[in-house]
Design a protein around this nucleic acid. Sequence first.
DNA 1: CGGAAGATTGACGAATTTCAAGCAAAGTGG
DNA 2: CCACTTTGCTTGAAATTCGTCAATCTTCCG
Lengths: 244, 244
Amino acid sequence: MPIRCHYCPLRELSCFVPLSDSEIRDMDKMKVGELVVDAGTPLLMQGSNAPQLFTVLKGMGLRYKTLANGERQVLNFALPGDFLGLQAGIMGAMQHSVEATTEMTLCVFDRQALWTLFRTSPERAYDVTWLAALEEHFLGEALLSIGQRSAAERMAWALYRLFARLTELGMGNGNSVPLPYRQQDLADALGLSLVHTNKTLAKLRASGVASWSNGRLSVNNREALAEAAGLTEDDHPLPKRPIM
Amino acid sequence: MPIRCHYCPLRELSCFVPLSDSEIRDMDKMKVGELVVDAGTPLLMQGSNAPQLFTVLKGMGLRYKTLANGERQVLNFALPGDFLGLQAGIMGAMQHSVEATTEMTLCVFDRQALWTLFRTSPERAYDVTWLAALEEHFLGEALLSIGQRSAAERMAWALYRLFARLTELGMGNGNSVPLPYRQQDLADALGLSLVHTNKTLAKLRASGVASWSNGRLSVNNREALAEAAGLTEDDHPLPKRPIM
DNA sequence: CGGAAGATTGACGAATTTCAAGCAAAGTGG
DNA sequence: CCACTTTGCTTGAAATTCGTCAATCTTCCG
């Protein structure tokens, strides 16, 4: 009896087009199993040639790159539904590392699955490429923020995006979402020092727009936060995959 | 008689695996034609739903994002061999703009070609995804630089990378390559002000490591430049696609 | 209780931006 | 051919943001 997980992108690339029964059977064949890791566990290492792909089912993590001198740039926050290891799967080696921030539950696939997917299911292959393009989009947005915005703007931008994503995932209740990262993590994501990150957060909190403490982010005034982040109305919240 | 261009990634995704005769015929069917544009011409606009994909045959351009307040972040420099519009092709709308910096010659494909590719040639589809992953890799590297490095390091990094790419393209002679951008372009790529960019360049020039003027970049001491950029020996110069 | 990890705060200094001005090269219209 | 304008590069000085240093505080945990 194959293990079942109904939330996997590799299955639930189905966010887009429902899978047929035979496709579901194929997916289950590719699935290796489920993995539960403790907080702090490294999942994928920069430069390594990981044989596995993961889908986040529960918990949160970080993708980051490290510099020779030890400095760290957080590229992205890995949330439920995210697909990890695509780069290694496609390029042969990871260009960044991934680490669990909280305890995480992952769906594990064999890397071979990717190639099988391309051979047997053009639609799914297209979905995977869509995911890669989406990642590229997020990195581009981050680059824009870090390159051109002030510390306060970057902070508002990051919190707004995280709030939106987590809310969309159904993890929030009203105006707050869980955000179990450290200030250092956000600092490394925004290219700011820890101290300055802390002070910028304090100002945001004092302004009453949003506050983040004890692993929880509360947004009291979403419009004001978007405004502070320099986001306009027509900023697509999240791109949707078009039907071919 | 179909137009021929032997340098197109969409054909020469063939950098990786040679195309069969029938594939070459398919590619030629997808090709719409060649396009020559003047310097300054916008090729793709952020938010637009471009019906076309381009391959750069000659000339150089810029990919960038703009902020509501008009500030600009350069994401990448578009050089010969680059594939433009993949995002729009996959995601339905461009998330950034592309503009010609010099006169450019482009190979034009219909967007539909992408989907055809996925249906008819899993190998080529895989190549396209590889390209998307490569783009992601470059953006990640840029994010690391801008987020964690000083102005001098960023500058050295950018010049080193550009020098390496252009040399690899066979566009250099010995220790110099053409680099027909403005200082403002580099400033926008590195998240620096124009003034500071200029002063940082002046220091690099004074140090005798590299100098960029009159549209030409000369590197006198490649090791020193890599060193200043904080790049280590084992930094993969350019990832190669693994054979499946 | 003692220690570790993370958050917070103030003071200081360095890196970078902004402002302002000048210069050189190239194009434009008379 | 010569003003005249435009574009891009260069330089100095002042202003500001942000990073570094150092210390304190809180919470959690053994």
